[in-house]
């Protein structure tokens, strides 16, 4: 089954095997609860990332990146996973592929970018998934943004052709 609007954001094979575990293809209780728990988990992880970015705690940031990478990969949320992998590497003061060393400052600025991008990818895929689960409630607010560094609101960006 293809998720409408997912494009390359979701890896079909991975996500499908989770959908297969649903007992009822209308209700989709199992996969829905997994996905929605992931939303919560992601929001809270992004919140922690923001705090630790302020505290310049690179090690914790890398751990947070790894943590979210695992769950997003398990759900097949490819783009979120890729950004999280970058966060993991930057936190170790490595470049995006984990090969070259970075200075602390470069790592921090890369982290800022990658975290913002990860949030954006998350918001995008969240929207797609909520539509898939017939949930029309507005996307969750950006609770994790600091007042001065509010990331751009994606509500205005129409990435989805439908």
């Amino acid at each position: 089954m293809k998720i409408p609007g997912a494009a390359d954001r979701i890896d079909d094979a991975t996500f499908e095997q989770i959908l297969e575990m649903d007992d009822d293809e209308e209700e989709r209780d199992f996969s829905k609860s997994i996905v929605y728990d992931f939303f919560t988990q992601a929001e809270s992880t992004f919140g922690k990332m923001d705090s630790n970015l302020q505290a310049k705690d690179l090690k914790t940031l890398s751990e947070l990146g790894h943590f979210l990478k695992g769950s997003s990969a398990t759900l097949g949320l490819t783009k979120v996973k890729d950004e999280c992998e970058k966060i993991q590497h930057y936190g170790q003061k490595k470049d995006a592929t984990g090969t070259k060393d970075l200075s602390s400052d470069d790592a921090l600025s890369s982290l800022q970018t990658a975290i913002d991008q990860a949030k954006k990818e998350f918001k995008d895929v969240e929207k797609v998934l909520k539509r898939f689960y017939h949930d029309d409630s507005s996307p969750t607010r950006h609770q994790f943004c600091t007042p001065n560094q509010e990331i751009p609101h994606h509500d205005s960006i129409h990435l989805l052709p439908h």
Binding site: I18, M21, F30, I34, D37, F38, Q41, F67, G70, S71, T74, L75
Partner: peptide, 16 residues
Amino acid sequence: EDDPTCRRIGSKFLYA
């Protein structure tokens, strides 16, 4: 497994 998402999906598969 420390990640709840992976843990739940893994458990579900194993249960299956």
